Amino acid sequence: MKVIFLQDVKGKGKKGEIKNVPDGYARNFLFKKGLAVEATPANLKELE
């Protein structure tokens, strides 16, 4: 799953980066803790 990092995550990505991460990791950790959002067209547009 492609995500946009909202904060630096040690060993995974830095704020503003767009990266592919495993689905479970994204849903169960990154999204729940507010560290990233899914890289949807709407979210990508907001990032610009």
Rank of each mutant, 00 (worst) to 15 (best):
A26R: 02
D8A: 08
K33P: 01
L35I: 06
L30N: 00
Q7E: 12
P41Q: 12
E38Y: 06
L6N: 02
E48W: 10
L35Q: 03
A26T: 07
Y25R: 05
K15E: 05
M1V: 14
E38T: 05
I4P: 00
K19P: 00
G24Q: 13
Y25V: 06
I18T: 07
G24L: 13
E48R: 11
D8K: 04
P22F: 08
D8P: 05
N20F: 15
Y25P: 04
G34A: 07
K10Y: 14
G13Q: 02
Q7H: 13
K32G: 06
Y25E: 06
M1T: 12
N20G: 07
G34I: 03
P22Y: 08
T40S: 10
V21R: 01
A36K: 00
V37M: 11
K10A: 13
K12I: 15
K12W: 15
Y25H: 04
G13A: 11
Q7V: 15
G13P: 00
G34T: 03
N43F: 10
V9L: 06
Y25K: 04
L47D: 06
E38Q: 10
A36F: 01
G13L: 02
V37I: 14
V21L: 06
K15L: 06
N43Q: 09
P22R: 09
V37E: 06
R27P: 02
L6E: 01
F5N: 00
K33G: 08
K10V: 11
P22L: 08
N20K: 10
L30D: 00
P22D: 12
T40W: 04
P41K: 10
G11Q: 05
D23P: 12
D23S: 15
L44M: 11
V3Q: 00
K32F: 08
E46G: 12
K45E: 12
V3I: 08
G13F: 13
Q7K: 14
K12D: 06
V3R: 00
F31Q: 02
K14M: 11
Q7I: 11
K45L: 13
N43G: 05
Y25S: 03
K2P: 08
K10M: 12
F31K: 02
Y25N: 04
A42W: 08
F5E: 00
K14L: 12
K12N: 09
F29N: 05
F29Q: 06
N43K: 10
N43S: 08
E48I: 14
E17Q: 11
R27W: 10
G11L: 04
L30E: 00
L44S: 06
P41F: 11
I4Q: 03
P22G: 08
F29P: 02
L30G: 01
L30K: 00
A36G: 04
E38M: 10
V37S: 04
T40P: 05
K19D: 03
E38G: 04
E17R: 03
A39S: 05
V21G: 01
E48Y: 13
K19F: 05
K33N: 14
V21M: 12
M1R: 07
R27L: 12
G11R: 06
G11T: 05
V3T: 01
K15F: 06
K15M: 08
Y25D: 04
L6Y: 03
K14P: 01
K33I: 09
V9Q: 01
E38F: 05
V3N: 01
K32W: 08
G24A: 13
V9E: 00
G11A: 04
D23W: 15
L6R: 05
K19S: 07
A26P: 01
L35P: 01
N20P: 07
K45S: 10
E46F: 14
K45V: 10
A42R: 11
K32A: 13
E48F: 13
P41S: 12
A26S: 04
A26H: 03
K19T: 08
F31I: 11
L6Q: 04
F29R: 05
L6F: 03
V21F: 09
L6V: 09
G24R: 14
A36T: 01
